[in-house]
Each structure stands twice: as structure tokens, then as C-alpha cells.
Amino acid sequence: MSADDFDEFYRDTSQRLLRYAYGLTGDAGDAQDLVQEAYARAWQRWGRLIRYDDPESWLRTVVSRLSTDRWRRLRVRRAKAGSVAQPATAPAPSEDTVLLVRAMRRIPPAHRRVLVLHYLLDRSVAEIAVETGASTGTVKSWLSRGRAGLAAAIGADDSSPLLEGDRHAGRLG
């Protein structure tokens, strides 16, 4: 079990995982906490994890689970864990990012997850289906409904250019 291997894995994957966590939570601090928690758990079982075909998807699973109901106490735990350095502060989000984050929080977690996998991690429908355990039809449905939910949350009507996002269906299929 090599720390060097782990550190290399961290370097290769942590930015994508941060992006994923930020997409799910919309909060830079929470994303940092979730990602560190996921990597801490990965290091605890690194000997096994390193043999997985796709250990990065395991990390995303951890982040997904934790983001649904546990991130609040993770923050508390990290805040109390005085010997663990706190990550550096993130830059302030733009107005557009705040708008999208607010809308993302209003859609169901399953829709949010597939949107994040697709838009922030460039995953295809087939890849998302494998990762979430849902059928490709379900993933397409979630993407479509997620986009519609975002449109509604942002306040656009059906004719809004926002629904241009549907063009992704071609790329996804």
C-alpha cells in the first residue's frame, strides 16, 4: 500500500471530485469537506480500492451518499478536528453560478446527480447508467426532467433558450 500511489491518484482525480462535490452541494466549503472525507475513507481501504477498475467512481459514490444527509455533521467534525488543516478559501462564485446553484438545490438529488455527471464530468448516458445503476432510459428521463426543473427554478418559460440544453440529448444518446 503506497502513499505515493495514493498521492498520485489524489493529484489525478481530486479536481474532478471537487467539481462533482461542488455540483452536488453548491458550497465550496462543503465540497472541500466531502472530498477530503471521501479520500480519507479511500486511504483507509486503499489496498483494496487500488485494485478496483474505477476507484474514482467509488469516490463519487461516497461523495453522493455523504452529500445527501451527512455533510452538515462532517463540517462540524472537521471544524472540531483541530489537527487537520482546513483547506484554503475558495473564490466567491459569480452571479450566474449562484443562480444555477440555487436552482440545482431545488431539483431532486437523482436529477442533480445526473446533471452534474453529464455537465461537469462529461459523462455519457451509458456511463451515467453504469454509475448510478439506472437504465439508460431512466437516465435520459432524469436529465430531461432535471433540465426542465432547472428551467422552472430559474424562472424561464418553455420558450426560453435555456431549454437549448435539450440538444445534449443527441450527444448523450
Binding site: 502513499a3 495514493f6 498521492d7 489524489y10 493529484r11 481530486s14 479536481q15 471537487l18 467539481r19 461542488y22 455540483g23 465550496a28 465540497a31 472541500q32 472530498v35 477530503q36 472525507e37 479520500y39 480519507a40 475513507r41 479511500a42 486511504w43 483507509q44 486503499w46 478536528a81 489537527s83 487537520v84 488543516a85 482546513q86 483547506p87 484554503a88 478559501t89 475558495a90 473564490p91 462564485p93 459569480s94 450566474d96 453560478t97 444555477l100 446553484v101 455537465y119 461537469l120
Partner: peptide
């Protein structure tokens, strides 16, 4: 836009994650 912002978020470092784990 959100992606660019996310990519500017600094990580905590692998050493801290290992220490915690």
C-alpha cells in the same frame, strides 16, 4: 461558469486525507 468556479476551489491535499484516514 459553474465548472470554472469549481475548478478554482483549492483541495485539502492528499497528506491531510491520508492523515485523517
Amino acid at each position: 461558469t459553474l465548472r470554472r468556479h469549481a475548478d478554482a476551489i483549492p483541495g485539502g491535499g492528499s497528506a491531510d486525507a491520508r492523515r485523517l484516514g
